[in-house]
């Protein structure tokens, strides 16, 4: 039986590889566009997936309300940009203020959600907190729908077309460039925060052993709150960037984006920060190729199929840690 599988595997890989190479050779610019589009998509996933993976790493909770925080970030930016636009402010100032407001609001929401929906359930069974998270997600969606509108609203890009990027704009837009560059900067800053700062050390220690962290004088509740705030900030940045890219938003955009980022986090190994980034890029690029070369209608089916396949064959993800350790 085994050789049949191997033969089938080799055959499929061969055909795909052949077709792939043929496509690349026949239209390299299209290939490059898809690759860069995938990279952009993956960057956005990464900005959201970080929040999932950090929160999971520290309290073993899948924070399903995280996609909503991202949506709130985009909404806040839209409101701020519209108001300031009416007053006729300078575009650059508007962009900066919109991002700042989006980050601050999302952080406040992330912080509050943790205090209201998860902290009281800290010692409850994990399923209770998960249900609470789903409830929080539905609540935030409907709250934004009622407070704003169920319709899609146009989002005027806050990012101008850079003059220096003009020669390459046909392959990758200025917005896409901004998304990728911003994501790289955010990742580097986050890496520094976690590896070298005092709060970063406290986060790593708390993720590994909460009781011991408390016994060394670490305020565990404060560390958990900080984790939510940091995750919310990156999600908000992702929300603003994607809104600039897509050009319209509504109250529901957080749902699918949140799920996709969750898939990315699982693909990379939930709880692992490099894993979330890697998983996001792999998911973004493979989605882009799938929609570009096969069927674009099946984009979401493809993403969820990946989730099912990982959960069957490698539940710990690409970079997931093996749970064995000496006690």
């Amino acid at each position: 039986m085994r050789w049949i599988y191997i033969t089938i595997g080799v055959a499929i890989t061969g055909v795909l590889g052949f077709l792939g190479i043929r496509e690349v050779v026949s239209d390299p610019v299209y290939f490059l566009e898809l690759l860069l589009g995938g990279l952009t998509r993956g960057s956005i996933y990464a900005l959201i997936a970080l929040g999932y993976t950090m929160v999971y790493g520290i309290i073993q909770l899948i924070n399903f309300a995280h996609g909503e925080i991202y949506m709130i970030g985009a909404m806040t930016a839209l409101i701020v940009a519209s108001v300031l636009g009416l007053w006729g402010w300078n575009a650059g100032v508007i962009a900066i203020l919109a991002v700042v407001f989006a980050v601050v609001y999302s952080c406040a929401y992330g912080f509050t959600v943790e205090k209201i929906a998860y902290k009281p359930l800290r010692n409850a069974p994990r399923l209770s907190a998960l249900i609470s998270a789903i409830g929080m997600s539905l609540f935030l969606q409907n709250y934004v729908m009622l407070a704003q509108t169920p319709e899609f609203m146009p989002f005027r890009s806050l990012i101008p077309d850079f003059a220096f990027w003009e020669p390459y704009a046909h392959i990758m837009s200025s917005v896409e460039l901004t998304i990728i560059v911003t994501t790289v900067i955010v990742m580097v800053l986050l890496g520094i925060l976690i590896k070298f700062t005092r709060i970063g050390k406290a986060m790593r220690a708390t993720a590994q052993d909460k009781v011991m962290a408390a016994l060394l004088g670490i305020n565990v509740n404060q560390v958990i709150s900080t984790t939510f705030v940091v995750g919310s900030a990156t999600a908000a940045i992702g929300g603003v960037l994607i809104a600039c890219h897509v050009g319209q938003i509504n109250f529901f955009i957080g749902f699918l984006a949140g799920l996709k980022a969750f898939i990315a986090a699982v693909l990379g190994g939930i709880g692992s920060i490099p894993g979330a980034v890697l998983g996001s890029l792999v998911l973004g690029i493979s989605e882009s190729f799938f929609t570009g070369y096969f069927w674009s209608e099946y984009e979401d089916v493809f993403a969820f199929s990946i989730l099912v396949i990982i959960l069957i064959f490698r539940p710990s993800g690409i970079l997931g840690k093996h749970e064995a350790q000496k006690v």
């Binding site: 790593r204 590994q208 009781v211 016994l215 000496k326 006690v327």
Partner: peptide, 14 residues
């Protein structure tokens, strides 16, 4: 007041 708890609780990945 500092404690060395039962089972030592070393941070395994640090």
């Amino acid at each position: 007041i500092c404690q060395v708890p039962e089972g030592r609780r070393i941070f395994p990945y640090l």
